[in-house]
Simulated assay, not measured.
Amino acid sequence: MAVKVKICGVRTPAIIEAAAAEGAHYVGLVLFERSPRHVEVEEARVLAAVARGKIGTVAVLVDPDDALIEGVAERVRPDLIQLHGSGTPERVTAIKTRTGLPVMKAIPVAEASDVVQAEAYAGIADYILFDAKAAPDAMRPGGFGESFDWALLRDAKPPFALSGGLNPDNVAAAVRVTGASLVDVSSGVESEAGMKDARLVRSFVQAAKAAASASRAKAS
Rank of each mutant, 00 (worst) to 15 (best):
L166V: 05
L166Y: 13
L166F: 13
L166D: 14
L166N: 12
N167Q: 11
N167K: 12
N167D: 15
N167Y: 02
P168C: 06
P168N: 05
P168L: 10
P168H: 08
P168G: 10
P168R: 09
P168Y: 14
P168I: 08
D169S: 12
D169E: 15
D169N: 13
D169T: 13
D169K: 15
N170A: 12
N170F: 07
N170E: 05
V171K: 15
V171D: 10
V171S: 06
V171E: 05
A172L: 00
A172E: 11
A172V: 09
A172C: 03
A173I: 04
A173S: 15
A173D: 15
A173H: 14
A173E: 15
A173F: 07
A174Y: 09
A174L: 12
A174E: 10
A174P: 13
V175G: 00
V175T: 01
V175S: 03
V175D: 01
V175C: 07
V175H: 02
V175I: 15
R176E: 14
R176N: 11
R176Q: 13
R176S: 15
V177A: 11
V177I: 13
V177T: 14
V177R: 15
V177K: 12
V177H: 08
V177P: 00
V177F: 03
T178F: 06
T178D: 03
G179D: 02
G179C: 01
G179F: 00
G179K: 04
A180T: 02
A180R: 04
S181Y: 01
S181D: 08
S181C: 01
L182H: 10
L182F: 07
L182N: 07
L182D: 07
V183H: 10
V183Q: 12
V183F: 07
V183M: 10
V183R: 07
D184T: 08
D184L: 11
D184E: 09
D184H: 07
D184K: 11
D184S: 11
D184N: 11
D184I: 04
V185R: 12
V185E: 06
V185H: 10
V185F: 09
V185Y: 11
V185G: 02
V185C: 02
S186W: 11
S186H: 07
S187L: 04
S187I: 02
S187P: 02
S187E: 05
G188I: 01
G188M: 07
G188N: 00
G188R: 06
V189E: 10
V189I: 13
V189P: 05
V189N: 10
E190C: 03
S191M: 05
S191L: 11
S191Y: 03
S191P: 04
E192P: 05
E192N: 08
E192V: 08
E192F: 07
A193G: 10
A193I: 03
A193N: 14
G194F: 08
G194H: 05
M195S: 13
M195L: 15
M195K: 15
M195P: 02
K196C: 01
K196L: 03
K196S: 06
K196I: 04
K196E: 06
K196V: 01
D197M: 08
